[in-house]
Design a protein around this nucleic acid. Structure first.
Lengths: 233, 233
DNA sequence: GATTGTGAAAGCGTTCACAGCC
DNA sequence: GGCTGTGAACGCTTTCACAATC
């Protein structure tokens, strides 16, 4: 049963790739594929086979030599490792363009992250329906977090409001934050923050674009393929 | 003038941080700050001072010992390095929730990435206005790319349509892609792809959340602070 | 014969620590 | 005295290559 939970610490780079493997495994499972080799999985994921094997070896020894990995079993193991055996309700702060899009994007709930609530400071937005859910007042955040046991908050406010949103989320009891606002957040020790910054992504692309045109000289060398980084194929 | 363009290759990790430094520098500049030390910049960026100095040293030696960095000058240099001396028009494929949000999000244009066009396969969406711009037919992609000299494409389609979108973008002449669809794209050599996958981000947070609750034992050890990774403060 | 699991090697990225310069 | 620029040390990540196993 709830065995095998000994503190195997998994490298961060591996944790970032597991969700990608998981998605591929689920797709293959739906196609009726029963076994998959590290090389096949690697091809689908756009990485190399050694990396897949190393990554999976951190979870345990779930493959069979000469055969590969049993898809269903591996799905179960990756899910368990990622903590996806139950849903994680999220609360979204900010009902602007992006907040609405995130709330309306069905993929969230489908993948185990149902939207437990959307809040906004703007009284004009409060009450309006987004994906069937009313936008609620920012002040209701603590109640939402408490009653729906939310531990993940999503910040979709303008930059100036983001730190306040983070403070309120933390005070309300949230321990993980996904930040879409272009600001560096300061949070207490023990709170996990990940950021998604669209402008930053474009600026990184700009760098490589520029390099392409500027580099009339020798190597037009390829940009390495990183886990969460860019990839020039 | 157009001097200093010798192929100094900047590490990928540094490239990913430069946009953050740039944003902070611009903010400080607007507040009237003239000089900034590596330590101050590091504090704002949530990294350490040695990293800031190393990163900036790849651009050249633009600091002054005993004083720090002149904000305006450094802004100029970082902009130049990132290729932000001119605008980079982008084309968005997919006018669903996310595509609309991206097009409507003013920050794009402000930061030098004006939306040159939005296209969608769905005839029902074609013609509708998003942020003052009509959604155009997917078939117009090549014309848009050609006439507005777009080199960056943004994919905001469902997963199943993403590879086709990528193929069309590449055929149309786009050389960098920002992919929001949850799929690994296959592109020809020389095309740069970056991905933003919301579900993946949440699943990574799930991992650390789970760890928090499961680890009743010894260390509740902090998660390291990575450039584009998670950070547990 | 095929494919995993994994030590060992190689490659990157971060941090230290201090000489050099203002 | 303060702060940058950077070689050297360290640690994390990727890749190699092969013994172990089916």
């Amino acid at each position: 049963m709830a065995t095998t939970s000994r503190s195997r610490r998994i490298p961060e780079a591996t944790v970032a790739r597991l969700p990608v493997y998981l998605r591929i495994l689920i797709e293959q499972s739906e196609l009726g594929v029963v076994n998959l080799s590290s090389e096949e999985l690697a091809d689908f994921a756009g990485v190399n086979a050694a990396k897949v094997r190393k990554d999976l070896s951190y979870l345990g020894t779930y493959g069979t030599r000469g055969v590969g990995y049993e898809v269903e079993y591996l799905i179960y193991q990756v899910r368990r490792e990622l903590g996806l055996t139950h849903d994680w309700p999220v609360v979204i702060v900010g009902a602007g363009n992006l907040g609405q899009a995130l709330a309306g994007y069905g993929g969230f709930g489908q993948r185990g992250f149902p939207v437990a609530g959307i809040v906004d400071v703007d009284p004009a937005k409060v009450g309006s329906l987004i994906a069937g859910q009313p936008v609620r007042r920012l002040e209701e955040l603590p109640a939402i977090v408490r009653t729906t046991k939310v531990s993940i908050g999503v910040i979709a406010t303008p930059a100036v409001a983001a730190q306040d949103a983070a403070d309120r989320l933390v005070t309300a009891g949230v321990t993980s934050i996904l930040n879409f606002a272009p600001t560096v957040l300061t949070v207490p020790h023990g709170i996990t923050v990940r950021k998604v910054d669209l402008a930053v992504e474009l600026q990184i692309l700009s760098y490589y674009e520029q390099r392409r045109s500027n580099g009339p000289g020798p190597s037009l060398a390829a940009v390495s393929t990183g886990s969460h980084r860019g990839a020039t194929a």
